[in-house]
Design a protein around this nucleic acid. Structure first.
Length: 165
DNA sequence: GCCAACGTTGGC
DNA sequence: GCCAACGTTGGC
């Protein structure tokens, strides 16, 4: 097949705010990923995440942080409308309809992992111990994942690649 | 709850 | 343009 190679991402969410189960429960198992208010992550959402890309859904800021499920991007970057809504927690008066500052993508759940992959699980695996999410001080809520890391997650989880026919 | 690491803001 | 102060993130 020609065209661009699929890329992979890890996306963090606090499960008490929006969990993988929440995503699974949405119509079409799809939801927009709003509320990112960091320029580096914004640039990734706006420019880099493309439909068909793979997503590792990571639960952060919880008792046992872990990768809990697989998802995919189904719509690339478009303006985050919550920035325009004064009643939203994510309202940003600098952003306007004609000149949006913040962007989001749509994500669809593919499948949960049979067991969450904790940080200890990741650290133990030679292919995964270098993942960005393990690095101290890394606060990026959207970050790139290599194809090897994606495969490693599938391997220790014992699940087939959802993108393989 | 603690606190290190980081990004952003604003005075100068 | 520097940098201190501040707010937030997020593991532990």
């Amino acid at each position: 097949m020609t065209g661009e190679k699929r890329r992979y991402w890890l996306m963090k969410s606090e499960p008490n705010c929006f969990s993988f189960d929440d995503l699974k429960g949405r119509p079409e198992k799809t939801e927009h990923w709003d509320g990112v208010r960091n320029f580096q992550a914004r640039n990734l959402l706006r420019d880099e995440l493309k439909p068909g890309d793979g997503v590792l859904f990571y639960h952060s800021n919880t008792r046992e942080p872990a990768i809990v499920g697989l998802a995919k991007v189904v719509r690339g970057g478009y303006p985050d409308h919550t920035a325009l809504d004064p009643r939203s927690d994510h309202f940003d008066p600098r952003s306007t309809e004609g000149n949006p500052i913040w962007f989001m993508v749509d994500v669809q759940s593919l499948r949960p992992l049979p067991a969450p992959l904790t940080r200890d699980d990741l650290r133990r695996h030679p292919l995964l111990s270098g993942m960005g999410v393990l690095k101290k001080g890394n606060r990026l809520s959207v970050q790139p994942v290599s194809a090897q890391e994606w495969q490693g997650v599938l391997e220790i989880s014992g699940v087939p690649d959802p993108f393989e026919k």
